[in-house]
């Protein structure tokens, strides 16, 4: 029996085909997959898919994470796809994160939060083929809550496989050249606006081994901030 899955004026004749295109409409696909009609059809056509999705429904509470994993139930070896993004390699994803800095892509950030990249890497066999990369990604995801933004950019550097920082599409490989450029009157004000909030520079400096200096920085700024806050309250 042939099946037709309709979603946003598109029609797919197999679950695999549907799975390959879920990334284009995450929200609609989530609604569709959760309908009893869809589940009934799935149960009739492929009980393995059905069982896997039912299991995911129980395990996954986040909508994005659920539908991300559903697409890999249908197409386990598919490239990295989610929310209209299609990455043919992890390096491209890493470069996207860095080139967009200091802005943060909320969908990529959510994916890190939901540990989707390590999930994807495991499906692709990275846990055996590139164990170090897999472990690093997993480690970053596990430490996400400590500092979400810094974790996001660290993921960028890791996946892009670089220690260079990019700002306004220009790449810098040394701390002094980067800061000399930043201190220019035309740059400093824009850069200052959200450099601390975004954590981009901190992620880079941590990667370069300046953790001790950063600890000192945060200790000095925190102490000052605490007293300032106290005085503003009183």
């Amino acid at each position: 029996m042939s099946i037709i899955i309709k979603i946003k004026n598109e029609e797919y004749t197999s679950f695999e085909e549907f799975g390959k295109n879920i990334y284009k409409y995450f929200d609609e696909a989530y609604k569709l997959v959760n309908t009893s009609k869809f589940l009934k059809l799935l149960k009739q056509e492929n009980i393995e898919y059905y069982d896997a999705i039912i299991k995911l429904r129980k395990e996954e509470t986040d909508e994005d994470a659920f539908i991300f994993k559903v697409q890999y139930v249908f197409c386990p070896l598919m490239e990295l796809k989610f929310r209209n993004y299609k990455f043919t390699s992890l390096k491209i994803l890493g470069r996207k994160i860095l080139l967009g800095a200091p802005k943060i892509d909320i969908y990529i950030k959510e994916a890190i939060k939901n540990k989707l990249f390590s999930y994807y890497l495991k499906l692709q066999g990275y846990d055996v083929l590139e164990k170090k990369l897999y472990e690093s990604v997993k480690n970053l995801e596990n430490n996400y809550l400590e500092n979400p933004n810094r974790c996001y950019f660290k993921m960028g550097f890791l996946l892009a496989g670089t220690q260079k920082i990019v700002y306004r599409r220009k790449w810098y490989d040394s701390v002094s050249t980067f800061f000399q450029e930043i201190l220019k009157p035309t740059m400093i004000h824009d850069f200052c606006k959200d450099f601390e909030k975004s954590q981009y520079v901190f992620a880079w400096l941590e990667l370069l081994g300046y953790q001790d200096k950063l600890n000192k920085y945060f200790s000095l700024t925190e102490t000052e901030k605490n007293w300032e806050d106290d005085n503003n309250v009183s």
């Binding site: 701390v175 800061f179 201190l183 850069f191 200052c192 450099f195 400096l205 000192k216 901030k225």
Partner: peptide
């Protein structure tokens, strides 16, 4: 505390060039 001051502190700690 101004963000600019924080940046200068960071640069001084890492690179030392804000005299």
């Amino acid at each position: 505390m101004k963000e600019e001051d924080k940046l200068l502190l960071l640069i001084e700690l890492v690179d030392g060039n804000v005299k």
